[in-house]
Design a protein around this nucleic acid. Structure first.
Length: 599
RNA sequence: GGUUCCGUAGCUCAGCUGGAUAGAGCAACUGCCUUCUAAGCAGUAGGUCCUGCGUUCGAAUCGCAGCGGAAUCACCA
């Protein structure tokens, strides 16, 4: 890596010239600004005081020393306190020669025997279908997992399905009461949507009951608690917990519908899991932990019998972990599942992809685990992402402004198909191939649109912009890949060109500005993957892919490739094309986006 | 009210541990297809980086204060 080489040369120079001890790794090298000549820039201001010389003098002295020591440095210039290094062409050519034909350039191979990083994401409730918020979660979870793999980690993806609780009983009850035996089969309604329909149905009738009770003179608070439907749902939950056969059978049937529906959506989204946990199996966990905490004296029992954690010394509040009736709460379960997961995987790290509305929850979870004596609590990482908002505000199920995941995907596919047909470039493909392409483009647009935004930030989902094919979009990058594939196909068929690893890379003339830009961007890939993985940010990968595609298109626009009459030059440019195609494909794969060979 | 996050072009977003004249895309306007895919390229225009103070040779970036927005502070999950 040229930058680490430069860092060490500079550190040596600082020592030799001014007796300054600097840690080579900590020296900052930045890409030279476009307005100046050079590839990498070192800012000397921080050292002028110790060097006791003027900035440009320090720059020249370090520059000369580094140039003498480092053959890769062709020349340098100093502008004010900025020392700009120009890297020798041969370095860039050697770089291309080294990696051309490598289908895994920049991707580290995952160590399968290492302790895994466990990524939990998705974690849906089984009472309603997936919506846009879940889509961001799923795409992020999948992408971060791929990113960590690309960075050489052993990654396990897990899903914790919230398949029990009062909310599930509500849809069960409503179906029993108002369903008339409707099933996904006899109605043609997708399972998760069907169950979601009865969840809404419950709410409708429940509200009506409240209203009626209030008209009879009951106050609202009381009416909400006394509505017969709610009482019945509660009693159903109780029977469920007691293992009542009839209730369990109903539960299993309806959950089966939901899972079939979810699987379909997951498949369309292109996400998956190594292991699925069900809360119905894990919800009892955690109670023992609470007992342990009581024994250890880190938890206390309140007068009414509830068990709590006093977190006031950590600047937080008191947190109830067992209700006075002894039942567990969400936090109790999460304590238990964390322990279970740690046992199952012996993880190096436990990542939770969960929205930022649960920041407080995870803060508390970590502290309590720590107090229970689990040092691995430090391995928990809450990958907290922002909300998805719509142009007219937040999604509200009550106002019907929730964007359904299935509908969204279908609409994207239809739009992609319409746009693609308009271009007419794919008319000769078979209907199956076309469908596959439209889906690829639709998902490319959707995924890129969501993933290009930094996870921690709230984002605005503008449906019109999300399906855009121009500019900073997934299809733009897909298109760039398709173009390159077209060139390579022609090169292979018309020029008998073969691209493989370990080829010679030679040109007679100097690299053009555009060629150099493309090479430098390719050269940035490993550092980008590392930085993105460290930040858990697919957005950094997305931006990288866009910059590379832009650099390539600019190069492509005014540089002859197959048209060039010099065989070496043509060959070199095809090699460059090939590396760009590979890199675009791999970086888009990290985002969960496939790239077509033509479009 | 406490805590946390956010505020960059008309809109959506990049700007990493402080560095040169703050960048993209969309929208607007100009050019470029008899030539490797124009889903592209090149260009014009568009900015008190929320405000103020401070630290520094140097601040969009760090600190404090204020303004504006969001989340959270459940015996819900």
């Amino acid at each position: 890596m040229i930058t680490t080489l430069l860092q060490h040369c500079i550190a040596d120079a600082l020592k030799k010239l001014y007796n300054i001890d600097a840690d080579a790794e900590s020296l900052v090298l930045q890409a030279t600004s476009k307005n100046f000549e050079g590839d990498y820039t070192f800012v000397v201001f921080p050292y002028v005081k110790q060097a006791r010389k003027a900035p440009d003098m320090v720059g020249r002295e370090i520059g000369e020393e580094v140039q003498n020591q480092c053959s890769e440095v062709k020349s340098f210039n100093v502008v004010k306190g900025f020392l700009n290094f120009v890297i020798d062409e041969r370095y860039w050519l050697a770089f291309v020669a080294k990696h051309v034909g490598d289908k895994q350039y920049g991707m580290k191979t995952a160590a399968t025997d290492a302790a895994p990083i466990v990524v939990e994401y998705s974690s849906p409730n089984t009472n309603k279908p997936l919506h846009l918020g879940h889509v961001r979660n799923n795409l992020l979870g999948w992408s971060v997992s791929q990113l960590l793999k690309a960075n050489g980690n052993n990654v396990k993806m897990v899903n914790l399905v919230n398949d029990r609780g009062i909310h599930i009983c509500k849809s069960m009850l409503a179906w029993q009461r108002f369903g008339n035996g409707e099933t996904p089969e006899n109605s043609g309604v997708k399972g998760d949507h069907l169950v979601g329909k009865y969840y809404v149905e419950f709410d409708k009738h429940y509200k009506a009951e409240i209203k009626e009770l209030m008209e009879q003179g009951m106050d609202e608070e009381e009416a909400k608690k006394q509505a017969p439907l709610l009482l019945e749902a509660q009693s159903m939950l109780k029977r469920w917990e007691e293992g009542d056969k009839e209730v369990r059978a109903l539960w299993e049937m309806m959950n089966g519908w939901v899972y079939a529906g979810f699987d379909e959506t997951y498949q369309r989204l292109g996400v998956g899991f190594d292991k699925i946990y069900y809360e119905s199996n894990t919800y009892m966990l955690g109670k023992e932990l609470v007992q342990k905490g009581l024994d250890m004296g880190v938890l206390y029992r309140r007068d009414d019998g509830a068990v709590c954690a006093d977190l006031t010394d950590a600047g937080l509040d008191h947190k109830v972990l067992l209700r006075k009736d002894g039942t567990s709460v969400y936090m109790t379960q999460d304590l238990g599942t964390a322990l279970l997961r740690q046992h199952d995987f012996g993880a190096e790290q436990l990542i939770y992809v969960v929205g930022n509305e649960q920041d407080y929850h995870f803060q508390v979870l970590k502290i309590i685990l720590k107090r229970l004596g689990y040092d691995w609590a430090d391995k928990l990482y809450h990958l907290s992402y922002g909300m998805v908002e719509l142009p007219n505000g937040k999604m509200k199920s009550r106002e019907g402004t929730v964007v359904d995941a299935d509908d969204l995907i279908t609409e994207m596919e239809q739009t992609a198909a319409a746009m693609s047909k308009e271009h007419g470039k794919n008319d000769d493909l078979s209907p199956e191939q076309q469908q596959r392409l439209f889906h690829m483009l639709a998902m490319g647009a959707l995924k890129y649109f969501i993933l290009k935004v930094d996870p921690s930030k709230n984002m605005l989902f503008n449906p019109a912009e999300s399906i855009d094919f121009n500019g900073n979009t997934g299809p733009f990058i897909q298109y760039t890949h398709a173009r390159i594939c077209s060139i390579i196909r022609k090169a292979e068929s018309e020029q008998n060109v073969v691209i493989k690893a370990g080829q010679d890379v030679t040109i007679q003339q100097l690299l053009s500005e555009k060629e150099r830009d493309v090479i430098k961007q390719l050269h940035n890939l490993p550092a980008t993957i590392e930085a993105a993985a460290a930040a858990y940010s697919p957005a950094m990968v997305a931006n990288y892919a866009f910059d590379l595609a832009k650099a390539f298109n600019s190069f492509y626009q005014d540089t002859p490739i197959l048209r060039d009459t010099d065989r070496d030059t043509m060959m070199f440019r095809i090699q460059l094309c090939s590396m760009v195609a590979t890199t675009l494909k791999n970086t888009m794969m990290i985002l969960g986006i496939e790239v077509p060979d033509r479009m």
